[in-house]
Nucleic acid binder design. Sequence first.
RNA 1: GUGGCUAUGGUGAAGCGGUUAACACAUACGACUGUGACUCGUACAUGCGAGGGUUCAAAUCCCUCUAGCCACCCCA
Length: 418
Amino acid sequence: MAITAVKGFNDILPDESGRWQYIEQTARRVFELNGFGEIRVPVMEKTELFCRSIGDATDIVEKEMYTFTDKGENSVTLRPEGTAGVMRAFIEHKLYAQDPIAKLYYLGPMFRYERPQKGRYRQFHQIGAEITGVNEPLADAQVLNMLTTFFREIGLTEPTLQINSLGCPECRPGYRAALRSFLEERMEHLCEDCKRRFVTNPLRTLDCKVPGCIEATSGAPSVLEHLCSACDDHFSSVRRYLDLSSTPYSINFRMVRGLDYYTRTTFEMVTGLLGSQSAVAAGGRYDGLISQLGGPSIPGIGFAMGLERVALLLGSQKFVSLPDLFIATMGGAERDVAFRLMDGLLKSGVRVELDYEGKSLKSQMRRADKLKARYSVVIGGNEVTSGRASFKRMADGIQTDSALTVADIRSLVGKSDL
RNA sequence: GUGGCUAUGGUGAAGCGGUUAACACAUACGACUGUGACUCGUACAUGCGAGGGUUCAAAUCCCUCUAGCCACCCCA
């Protein structure tokens, strides 16, 4: 038996990688335009980092982490998400000392031991961005704006923005209590999972998909009505800024987060096109995280988006570059000339393909067609002696005579000067 | 962790116990005397996810395993 890849770990073949590069390049461009700089952090961290940031009792930490003991007897974990590692680096290098405001983005693989399905794999990729040091709702709005812009730039209209506020340590306990007493009266209508959630995390009952639960919780109190005045003001300002920038959004007071560190503003870019994987990007404010990790008391806000999910939304569009010219040759002697010509053209930025194996002219032309080369040229004895050749535009078969020089060919195939 | 579905060549697939595993696409080469696309010809699974079993005979029946997909849980 040949060796196969590990379950949930996928290869990205050349056919698809163009789409990935397109996503990554678009993200980099949009993020850098907004003043974000890339930070590259390790894929592995001490296990404790994730326990303290994501939360000990979350599903991610409890059952989805790739955790093991290394040869030095340290418990290490393959990062299940990006924010924790970025904040660890932020604190470790005292980035806040150089500049009280940091705008960082990252991209790379994340690892979660889950059962794979559509849009969800054990190794998956995220691109995320974080702003630290800003309490003002302006930061929330810029992040949301940037995320919306990214999806517009990449050519997708489908994921739409939903926002909510989770309040802060001041007001959330009050809401939780109010929700609990509401649920208590409807216990018998809740599913088994929700009865469990009632104890562990009552907010979770709000996004249960069981019809009975949806009905039972339809009149549930909203977090938004239990925000303290500071949180309420913050949320109103965020909404006002979104309106000022014409950023479309809807409010979803039932939205919850799977990571414990979120406070105040939370949001998701959601789609109905990916089955149960509706969240394409998600994030929120995490004002307590940095101090919780042993850093100074600095607020933060950020998001992460799932590259696989964005790629699925882009569909099977191909993002490949096509050769400008295919050079066919008649025989061995001409191949030397063709090779030198290709070398010169490549160095001047013309994408050239050449027959490698001395095949028949028929085969060479078929290959030119298959590669979708824009032009083809045949180099034989006549061309070598005259220094000129006929360049065939493949789309319509029209041939144009031109000298076999890099400059002339460049202008013929339509590459503007550097 | 729990459920359901599916496993035949590079791909999509026929085949439902019996001679050389259909067909299409893709691929390779060739025919139209140094030029692709259309047309035509030729080649292309000693093997039907893996391992057992039943049978004179198994891709087709039985058992075990494995993988993939989809959903739940949870999440990006």
